[in-house]
Every structure is written in structure tokens, then in C-alpha cells.
Simulated assay, not measured.
Amino acid sequence: MSCSNSIVKTFFCLFLWCCFSFTSSAQEEYKDPKNKDPKEVFAGGSFYEVQKYPQTKPNKTPKNIILMIGDGMGLAQVYSGLTANGGHLNLENFKNIGFSKTSSSDQYVTDSAAGATALSTGVKTYNGAIGVDPNKKPVVHILERAEKKGLTTGLVSTSAITHATPASFIAHVDSRKSFDDIALDFISNDIDVFIGGGKKYFEKRKDGKNLSQELKDKGYQVLYNIEDIQNVKSGKLAGLTAEDHNKPMPDRGEMLVPATQTALKLLSQNKKGFFLMVEGSQIDFAAHKNDTPGVVLEMLDFDKAIGAALAFAASNKETLIIVTADHETGGMTLLDGDYKTGKVVAKYTSLGHSGIAVPIFAFGPGSEEFTGFMENTEIAEKMMQLLKLK
């Protein structure tokens, strides 16, 4: 009888392990080789107009910083979008350009967790780490430093808000797969605005907690669709726009631009200034699949959000915008294209990340600091210095 009970317990434990393992790995399904969807050609489509914005005077300290991260965005991903939009992107407004060395503390090829932690803290760490150093000790994020100084802060992402890149700006955990623990840091932090997917990590948790209710108790407006989110006029906002990741383009529709505009509207009400991180997450997702149309559509969506940030910064004149990537994905190269039709033909060398340096684009006061080759950690250090956070 005891033997039978032991077998039953063993199978029950295995069942629970499988359930929890599936839950914890669901955010990473886009990396699975079985989901590879190689498509070499983007046939082309309609173009959108690109506005021109004059560069503000250099050598002036910014009051606000908008950091925009195109996850997996290397130069080929940028140029695929430029080709697909008839030869122009909003990124062409950025005249100060550099390159970021992306290696992590333990590997030549970084992952998003280590890459984003370097951008948020100025410290290189091991692949998989979220806001901790190589010894797994918490490192202070720029977002936390900004809050301490009285600036308003925000995160916007087309992935789950608990995914590696946005998580690296708010959480301190030793594994990027600890999604429930990452969500807890949104409660302990004083962030003003966050918009992205990941609702289930706030409301369908293993510990039974309802973090959305806790957010409401702290004064947040907790909303679930972009139509309601963009109507918010003031106050703290938690926008949970999907159970896990948001849908890829074009199924996602207009989400990133209105989310960025809403965050800017709310954060800019603080006279002391703000820090906002906006991530175009799914450039990376599509590149992991070697899906050229997916890469192009996500790149164009991200560039439209860049256009929204530029419109704000050109009017505000006290805002620095930095656009970069945590790493390149896919080893993407362009074999052919057509500016007239928007056709893009690409090949890939990998289903994973590559170690190539990624571009940095900067616009606004302080933008002259972001030229030439630099370590990814220098981007964080320079942002902190410009906002006088250290």
C-alpha cells in the first residue's frame, strides 16, 4: 500500500512539474526551432509618410529621456524596414549614430535579459539575469534612480510586460523565467505607467494573489484594451493588453503608437521630468522564426512609435530619444530589395541571436554623447549622468 502511495505521489509531482514548466516556458515558445517559419521575401505594401524634425541644439542637458529598444534589431532589420517603406524611416531624423557592443558577462552572444540589464543598470551580467550582477546581487536600475529623484517613470512593450527586456528595468531576479516573481516587483516599485501583455502573471498566479487588485488599491487604473488606455488623462496606469504576449503584426493592430503616446501624455505632466522605456519586442520574435515579412512589419510598427516619440520631443525640446537594441537576432542579411514596391529579400544564418554590434540612434539634447563604438553599459551610464541620477 505504501509503495502504491509512493507511485501515486511520484506521478502527481511529475504532473505538477509539467504544468509549472509549461507555464514558465510559454513566454519563450517563439524561440522553439519547431516554430521556425522561414520566409525569405516580403512582397511589399503601402508606405506611410515620414516627417522631418529639426535636431535641437546640442550640449544641452535633457529633462526627459525616452529609451526605445528594438529587440533583436540589427542594421539589416532597420534597413529591411527602410526598404519596405519606400526608402525612408522616421529613424532618418537621428543624426547622431553609434554602435553598441552587446556581449554579456559570460558569453560573446547575449540574451535579452543580460542585454537589457546592461542598458538599465550599467552593469554587465550573465545570460538570463534580470537586474542582478554576475554574483546574483541586485543592481539599481535607472528607473529606480529616476523615481528616487522625483521623476515619473514608465515602461511600454509589445511583449508581456514581465518578459526579459521590460523586466530588466524594474525587477531583480536571478532567472528571466521567474515571471510571477517579476510581476511582484511591479507592486513593490513606484512606477507610474506600464503597458504591455502578461495579464496572467498578475491575475492567474501560482500563489493565488491578484496583483491587479493590489495595483488598484495603490491607486492605479488597471485597464485591458488600448481603446480604454489611450483615454486616460492623468494618474497612474497599468495597462495589461493580453494574457501573455500581444499578437504579432498585423493582428495586433495599432497598439504601440497609442501606448507610447499615452505614456508620454501622463509622464510629461511631472515638471521634474521623466524616464520612459519603449520596446518593439517582436522584431526579435519574427527573426527567431526567420520570418522576413514578420521582421519588416514589426520594424515598421516600431518606427511609427519612434515617429510618435519624435513628434513629442520636437515640440518639447527638453527630451532626449535613444533608439538601440539589446542584440541582433537571426544573423539577418538582405540579398535584394526594391524601394519602389517595398520588396525585401533576406537570408538568415541562425534561429538565435548573433554577436554583432547593434546601432544606436540619438536625437535631442545630449544626443552627441551617443556616437562611435561603446559598450552597452555606457548607454546606461550616460543616461544616468545626463539626468543627474548618480
Rank of each mutant, 00 (worst) to 15 (best):
Q77S: 11
D180F: 14
A242C: 14
Y30R: 10
H172K: 09
T61N: 08
A167Q: 05
K216E: 15
F15N: 15
E375N: 04
H172S: 09
F186E: 09
K247Q: 15
K137E: 03
S24R: 05
D338I: 05
G154D: 09
E279I: 00
Y201R: 12
S80Y: 06
F202Q: 13
I97S: 04
T23K: 01
S80P: 05
K317N: 06
E92Y: 07
G154P: 07
N96V: 13
S354P: 08
T319H: 04
I130R: 04
E28A: 08
A346N: 04
K60E: 14
G366E: 00
F169Q: 01
N246M: 06
D133F: 02
Y126G: 07
K124T: 08
V295S: 07
I356E: 13
G273F: 09
K95T: 15
S159E: 03
L211C: 02
I195F: 01
T125L: 02
K347S: 11
E318R: 00
E214W: 08
L335C: 12
A314G: 10
T262I: 03
A171V: 12
G86H: 11
T83N: 08
I283L: 02
L75R: 02
H88A: 01
G115Q: 11
I360W: 08
M255C: 05
D228K: 13
W17C: 03
G239T: 11
K390Q: 01
D301V: 12
E318I: 09
K218L: 04
D301T: 15
S6L: 06
K390Y: 00
F302H: 08
E328W: 14
P134Y: 00
M73R: 04
K200W: 11
F11L: 12
F47G: 10
A118P: 05
K95Y: 07
G355I: 09
F11I: 15
A26M: 10
L276H: 08
F169S: 08
Q221F: 03
Q230E: 11
Q77F: 08
N93G: 00
A311R: 02
S315Y: 02
F22Q: 03
M249R: 02
T117F: 00
E328Q: 07
T319F: 12
T152M: 00
I187F: 12
L155I: 04
S100T: 14
T56C: 11
G294C: 05
T125I: 01
T153H: 04
L16N: 13
G128N: 05
F202P: 15
